[in-house]
Amino acid sequence: MDERCAQLLSQIMSAKNPVKISELAEAFNVSARTIRYDLDKIDDFLKDNELPQLKRKPNSGIEYIPSHYQKQRILELLEGISSYNYVLTPLERKKMILTELFQAKDFMTIDEMASILSVSRGTVANDLKAVRKWLSKHELKLESLPRFGIRVKGCEKDMRRAVISLLSENMEIEKALNLIKAPINRRINIVTDRQLKKLFQDLDISPIENAIRLAEKQLKTIFTDNAYSGLVIHLALAIKRIQLDKNIVMPEEELSQLKLTKEFAVAAGMVAQLEESYNIRIPTDEIGYITIHLLGGKVTETDIFSNQDWMRLQLLTDEIIKGIERKLNVDFSADAELYNGLIKH
């Protein structure tokens, strides 16, 4: 069974309702006859592995509802399918190159990249034009040195913003969380997805989620799904970058302002937990960016890195509330409606 069949089976499994052959043909840009041939291959694959076969419902479509155990078994089998006979599109190659570069600790050679993509050196050299253009839009550069290879050059803040952008090109931030948790996120292309997952490989995110739950208790709030997912992604990315000795820097003035907030103290507590769990040292500047997330529960990762006015607005709102509390001797820390109302106005 080839890569397209693997994608086809994944799409049928994830569908809530039976999928028509015409819909599958349109989605994969092939003929209905090709889809029928692929479905036969899938049935052979399932039969060979002693799994239930596809259900073909007249006037309805194709359906497959395996048990939890069967689904896990299928996902494991699909992971082992070689993609040697799957021709990557230029867009897929660009994303795979970017993913490899972002997770590399130093230079990568053209030969290494060609081997990963199963293409020629010339194809990689041509793909790098699109990579350079993409990086330029994110204030980054592709550095090339003879006998060393290529690597991404730029400040760490722009690096992380670019990684988040790469993720968001394929899925919403909430779905990106599934990328870390699941063996493979079947909502997007299986080849590109496998590469994106490598950004967070070997990372157990349960300590991150535990730290966030503690923060919610201390702040007496519950983050929105989007804010929660954004914070998990931010922390997971930060930990992976720190493990590569890539530390972020925050302007001292902004960091000093953030240190005055209660959220900074909560963020520092989270960091203490994470340092112990992952056996790393997280710098103070990193605590500052975590604080920004805690201050802006409805702000996504991309917004946080790019919108400094939003951060200042939240700091100002926090100071206003503290001033009112001192005058009236009343605690408004749990009044989310007051806080959000002031932010909006």
Rank of each mutant, 00 (worst) to 15 (best):
D2E: 13
L9C: 10
S14I: 14
K16S: 12
N17Q: 15
S22K: 14
F28E: 10
A32M: 10
I35N: 06
R36A: 02
D38E: 13
K41Q: 13
I42K: 06
L46F: 09
E50M: 10
S60F: 03
I65A: 13
P66C: 10
Q70M: 10
Q72H: 11
R73H: 15
L77R: 11
E79Q: 13
V87N: 15
T89P: 07
P90E: 02
K94E: 13
L98V: 08
T99N: 09
E100V: 00
L101C: 03
L101E: 00
L101G: 02
Q103Y: 10
A104L: 12
A104H: 11
D106G: 12
F107C: 02
E112G: 00
S115E: 15
V119L: 04
V124H: 06
L128R: 05
L128H: 03
K129Q: 08
S136P: 00
L142I: 09
R147E: 12
R151I: 11
R151S: 06
V152R: 05
K157H: 07
A162E: 02
L167I: 15
E169F: 06
E174G: 01
N185H: 13
R186A: 12
R186V: 14
N189A: 07
R194N: 09
Q195K: 08
Q195I: 00
L203I: 13
L203P: 03
I205L: 08
E209S: 09
I212W: 08
R213S: 14
L214T: 12
Q218V: 10
F223Q: 11
N226P: 00
G230D: 10
I233F: 02
A236S: 15
A238F: 06
I242K: 02
D245V: 00
I248T: 07
P251M: 04
E252T: 10
E254K: 11
E254H: 08
S256G: 04
T261H: 05
K262M: 07
K262D: 13
M270E: 04
E276S: 08
I280Y: 01
T284H: 03
G288W: 03
G288S: 06
T291S: 13
G297K: 08
G297R: 10
G297Y: 03
K298E: 13
T300D: 13
I304Y: 01
N307H: 06
D309H: 08
W310F: 00
M311C: 07
Q314D: 09
L315I: 15
L316A: 14
T317E: 05
D318P: 00
E319G: 03
K322T: 07
G323F: 06
G323C: 02
E325C: 04
V330I: 14
V330N: 02
A334W: 04
D335L: 08
A336I: 06
G341C: 01
